[in-house]
């Protein structure tokens, strides 16, 4: 194989030879391409021209599907279930006290058995400024 010294001309020559060596398979006929374009345009325009009521119904159905479970529209709850405490709340175990970051001296969390409220309080004593405290409380309503 004769290799020209100049890389650029060599590369171009190689690609030209490669193109000659390759079969050129038939490309899709232009008519097929244009037919596919017109079919896509018809599909898009018919979709756009669909009755507005169809979209309104679809939107309504989607809304019902999303909202109904949250509103318990299609579920029945027995009185016993209604008064049963939330399992998530029940899984929280009472914590007497735990230490936290340097700034805080204490963090207390208490949850009385079967109570509906959760209270977290913390206080810190700063030698420079006066002591500060914060608290967070959470309560659920009993039925």
């Amino acid at each position: 194989m004769t290799i020209p010294e100049d890389d650029e001309s060599l590369e171009r020559e190689l690609f030209a030879r490669r193109e000659r060596a390759l079969v050129s398979p038939p490309v899709p006929p232009l008519e097929d391409v244009l037919r596919a374009v017109s079919v896509q345009r018809r599909t898009v325009s018919s979709f756009r021209a669909a009755p507005a009521s169809l979209f309104a119904f679809a939107a309504f159905a989607a809304s019902v599907a999303v909202i109904a479970p949250r509103m318990h529209l299609f579920t029945t709850v027995s009185p016993e279930e209604a008064i049963r405490p939330d399992p998530v709340m029940m899984s929280v175990q009472p914590v007497a006290a735990m230490s936290t970051a340097e700034q805080d001296d204490s963090l207390a969390c208490s949850l009385p058995d079967r109570a509906d409220s959760l209270a977290i309080s913390s206080s810190s004593e700063d030698p420079v400024s006066s002591s500060s405290s914060c608290s967070l409380s959470c309560a659920t309503e009993s039925p």
Binding site: M1, F15, R17, R18, R20, A21, L22, V23, S24
Partner: peptide, 19 residues
């Protein structure tokens, strides 16, 4: 590979090598 009948044996060889 394109139809080799259309090209000389030397050209065919070079073209195949390039490929």
């Amino acid at each position: 590979i394109a139809d080799p009948a259309a090209r000389s044996p030397e050209t065919q060889l070079l073209d195949r090598e390039s490929l």
